[in-house]
Structures are given as C-alpha cells and as structure tokens.
Design a protein around this nucleic acid. Structure first.
Lengths: 333, 333
DNA sequence: TTACAGCATTAGAGCGCTCCAACCAATAGA
DNA sequence: TCTATTGGTTGGAGCGCTCTAATGCTGTAA
C-alpha cells in the first residue's frame, strides 16, 4: 500500500530526481540512454507521478473541475462527454462532483472542487446563488453551462430557447395547425426563453398564444392536459417545455381516448434518449449537448492559458427532430 | 486569482502558521482568544485550506474516487447518491470520473483518479480487465459495484439477479401464465444470473424455459419480439433482461396489433425512471441502488480505517414492482 | 526560593514534486 | 591554444501544509 516516489525511481535508475522529473514530463533535453533507463526503473517499480505534489510544486494544475447539478439527468452526461473530449485532447484531467439539485449540497461540492485548486471550473446548470459563483470566479476561470448569468468574468454556454420554440411552432404551423398551446416550465431554467420564443412565433404567424402553466415533469404534463380537456380548451397541437412533460401529456391524451398525432400533435424539448425510444418516438427540439461541453471546455482552457480575459457568451442554435408525434390536424394524410 | 495561504492568515492574526493549522483542523488545544482571531483573519482574507497540500503533508486523504463506467445510465446516478451520502456523513469528499464504457478511456480515468492518491476507490460496473483492478487494489482499498470479481482484496456489491428473475417468474405464474419467455442480455453484465434465475424458476414451477437471445437495448427487444411473432412462438408473458429491452418489446407487440397486458404481459428489470413514467408504467424488478452506494462506501471506509482486511461480498435482494404491463392471460379480469 | 506540572504555542523538518541556476563535459570558433 | 557555446545533468530551494519535539508561560507544591 505504499507507492514509490521519484526518489526511488532515481535511485534505481542511477540518476538524479530532477532527471526523472524531466523524463516524466517528456522533456526533449534528456539523452535516449537515460530516458530508457528511467522508464525501465519506473515500470519495474510501478511508479506513476503524484498529481497533487506535482501541482503543488508547479503552482499549476491540469485538472478541470466539473460540477453537475443533477447526475440523474442524461442531458449532463452528454455535455460531460464533450468536455471530456476536449480536455483529454489538451492533456487535462476532469474531475466531477455533484450537487444533487440542492443549493446546500452544491455549495459543498463547489468548496470541495475548489480545494483541489483546479485550473478552472465548469458548472452545469448550477442552482447556487450568483454570489457564490462570483466568489469562485475571483479565484479561477469559471464557465457556466445551461444557466445564464450577469456575473462578469464568467463565460456562459446556452442554447437559444427562443429559436428552439420558434422552430417547433413553425413546424406545427407548416403542418396546418393554428391552435397551438404551450405547456410552460414555470420557474425552471430556460423556461423563460422558450415561453418568449413560443409567444413571439405565434404572434409572428398571426395566431393567439395559449400558455398553460406547467412544470418539467411527466406528472405536470398530464395534469396540464387534463385541465385543458376539462375546460374544453384543448388545442390541436401542444408544445411542451421538455420531453418528460410531453410524455406525460401524451399519456393523459391517450387516457382521454385521444390519439397522438391523429387528434393532437405533441412536440417536446431536449431530445433526450427517452424521445428516441420507438415506444415514444417524440418530435422534439434537439440541443447540441456535446457541443455545449466542447465549447465550455474550449472557453475555459482559453482563460486558463490566459489567451482571453473578456467574457464570452455562447448561444447555440437548436434544431428540430421530427418523429411520430406530429402530423397535420386530423391525422396523417 | 491568487489565493491566500496559511502563512498569510498567520501573519494577519499575529500567530504562527502551526497555530492556524490547528484551528483549521478544529483542534481543542487552542485558546478561544486565538481561535477567534485566526478565524477572523481567515474570513477576511477569504482563506480556505489547500486540500492537496494538506493531503501531501499528512500522508492521508479524505477523498474517495468513484469511477462511473457510464454517466448516461441513471442507474449509476442513484448509486452515487448513496456513496455521497455516506461519504459526506463521515467527512470524506467524493470525486467522480468516467470511462465512457471504453476500456482504454476507463484505464485512463483510473490512472487519473489514482494520481490524486485518494483514500480509496469505488468502481461502478467497470469494463477494464481484472488485472488492472488487481493492480489498483495493491495500492489502495477498492470496492466493485455491479461487477463480480474473483480478485482477492476487493470488496463487491451486487444484486442477486437470480432472485430478481425468480420474483418476476413467480409473479407471472401467480397471474396464471405458463408460457413465459426470457429475452436475455447476452454478454452484458448480470445477464448470466438473471438467465439462470429465470430457468431455475421455470423449472421449479414445472414449466418449460424459453430463452430468446437479445440485448440491453430497446431495438434488440423489438427485434426479439418480431422474431417470436414470425416463428409463431409468442408466449403469453415476457421477462426482459432490462427495462429498455422491455420497452422495445412493448413497442413491437403494439406494432403487431397486440395489447399489453391484455394479450401479452411484459416485465422489465432495473426499475429505471423510464419504467415509472405513466406512459410506460412497466412492471419491473427494482434494485436497491442507493443501498448499493451506501454499502460500497461503508465497505471502503472500513478498509480505509483499517477496521477490516478480509474481503466482503454483498449480494442484495431485489424486489418486484407491479405496474400496468402485467395481468392474467387474456387481460385483467 | 526552586521544581514541576500542565497547557498553549511555535520552530523546523519533511511530504513528492518542479524549477532555477549552476555545473560539467564535449565540441566549435577564433 | 584559449574561450564560447551547447546539450545533458544535478543540487537545492520551495510549493502549502502537517507533525513532532521543543519552548515559554503560567500556577502550584515542596
């Protein structure tokens, strides 16, 4: 249970500790002879460098900290994929941490990440107050994903929810729909832009917006539909705030004996793996999630390398994915 | 961007660095006077201890490394919840890392985790070869979750797939089914025990097992059902290897004009959040995932504290969750 | 008075590494 | 011949902290 140190390797290879350090960092100014001797000794001893000692001594870090607000949401997994890809390419390691959607836990997670003195921090849809983010940003570069922020000196990466909602409305209108309701995401992140985009797109088409208050869950989607049916205000098409909400809406419609998309078309938002299941096959709005991650990592590394000090705000364009839950009013021709 | 050190705090508080260290670690042998002076100075400077320097100097670590083979799978998120809970209680921090189901990437992830010299390592369903695990286990305590192993000195936490499969079969038989097929998980982890449990349970009931080769995806589940229909060998009930497979199976059944559960009952495995969606409402087998995490963390911490050296093998009992995809043959009475 | 606890406090070494300046051939240039 | 130059190598300081042993300082007993 005791790991060899550089000293041990140096002793075995018959060189100085400094030389071993050079070899480990792949310096070109080491003779082939010594290099192989060192590598051999390291191999035999099962040596691998101590990242913390290294970072302490060099006063630099090759670690990027990532705080994921909710590990249960596959959305973040794909963002992490993108981060990982870029980080690996550029020789950085990624450590992840989760806040479980609770501000208190998230704060602790942030502290914990910070205590490793990483080169930078990426926060995925954090729920901690902006002040906590600002404080972190004073100590190291910080990038926010899926949460906008007015904190200066923080880069952000978001999707353009207004465009996404417009894409959905345009699609439904082009199918011939005129009565299109939006089940909105209430206080949820990004609910605002989606709602605004929906309203703007409806008005642009000369149609009357119908915003129904709802939430990001399937139960809420079902509830919203039931209330629409009860009040006899059911439209021919629904734009949900996200995929879960849409699936709940579909269930409630089917429970009421209505067919999707024959009687009512439904569009989700996020293109989660759920939407792609053949049993669901939901028309939805896709966000370039891996791209989110790549851009976030790029932005962070630019700051880490001090290539940029001005904050950057990425706003990515979502796209429409047509599956089987949308059709012209009255059903597919 | 430069963080204050202990020295700075000591200077400001008019004490020695060692005293600040004692205060930071909550030592009782510090006078109230000095303690408050130190805390005040630390507060004013925005000081927080440098975890790496601390761990280097003390030759101990309060970090648990967790390698998640696949971040996209919500199964692991719940296990991490359990780990997190126990770790937090006992004053340990958790850092996560992912291998993306690729042995090469996973190996790198392992290296990276190891380079932080954590107190111990938890591997969630790793795909790296056993030798790599064994090598890690020589350096620090290692716990394996959702992967059995014959490596000595490694603790494991698994669910009893044989019991789970038996629960499902018993449930179907009690509903009156006799022709029950199993869509199996092929080479996937835990597919073996589930298949064995199914076969054993069928035989215990005096029924003929019918194992159909399949995989852990919804497309594979659909394919298996189509082949059963084509070959006219469709049973009255299906036990899928997991929930995704089950959802695919349901889609294919519905495509063929069959109703679930009226014509065919379907049982999944894992009780993912997918199964709980009202649109799906899948009868399935639940594994105590958070409990997996808690037990794994407990086992690891026991070893970290050197309270135990003998390996421990946890085998947890799954349970049946009845929803709407199972009914007596011919449909609900 | 001296001795001796008992307690709070501190100096200093050292954790495993990096980095700088110095060093030492060996070769090239004058 | 002597002086630069170059490429490879090394000692030693120091990163921010912990830990041990030693220090100073009371107060009490002899």
């Amino acid at each position: 249970m005791v790991r060899p140190t550089m000293e041990d390797v140096a002793l075995r290879a018959g060189v100085s500790r400094a030389l071993v350090s050079l070899v480990m960092r792949g310096s070109p100014k080491v003779s082939e002879l010594r290099r192989s001797a060192v590598l051999k000794a390291a191999e035999e001893l099962g040596y691998s460098p101590h990242a913390m000692a290294r970072s302490l001594a060099s006063r630099t870090s090759t670690v990027l900290g990532v705080m994921v607000s909710d590990l249960h949401n596959a959305f973040f997994a794909e963002v992490v994929d993108g981060i990982d890809e870029v980080a690996r390419e550029q020789g950085f390691d990624v450590i992840i941490n989760t806040g479980g959607r609770s501000p208190a836990r998230e704060r602790r997670a942030l502290e914990s990440l910070l205590s490793f003195r990483p080169a930078g921090l990426i926060l995925l849809s954090p729920v901690v107050p902006a002040t906590a983010i600002g404080k972190a940003a004073e100590q190291l570069p910080v990038v926010l994903v899926a949460r906008s922020s007015r904190v200066s000196d923080v880069d952000t990466v978001n999707d353009d929810g207004e465009v996404g909602a417009r894409l959905a409305v345009d699609h439904l209108v082009s199918l011939g729909h005129q009565r299109i309701a939006h089940l909105d995401g209430g206080e949820g992140t990004q609910a605002g832009p989606r709602r605004r985009g929906y309203v703007a797109a409806m008005e642009a088409h000369g149609l009357v917006p119908q915003v129904v208050s709802s939430e990001y869950t399937d139960a809420a989607g079902a509830r919203a539909i039931r209330s629409l049916i009860t009040s006899d205000a059911l439209p021919t098409a629904i734009l949900s705030c996200n995929d879960f909400n849409a699936v709940g809406a579909i269930s409630a419609l089917e429970d009421a004996g209505l067919r999707v998309p024959h009687d009512v078309s439904v569009v989700g938002y996020d293109n989660t793996s759920l939407a792609a299941l053949r049993h669901v096959s939901l028309t939805t709005i896709d966000q370039p999630r891996a791209e989110f991650g790549r851009l976030a990592a790029d932005a962070l590394l630019q700051r880490v390398r001090e290539e940029r000090t001005e904050p950057v705000r990425h706003l990515l364009t979502p796209s429409l994915v047509v599956r089987s839950t949308t059709a012209p009013p009255g059903g597919p021709r």
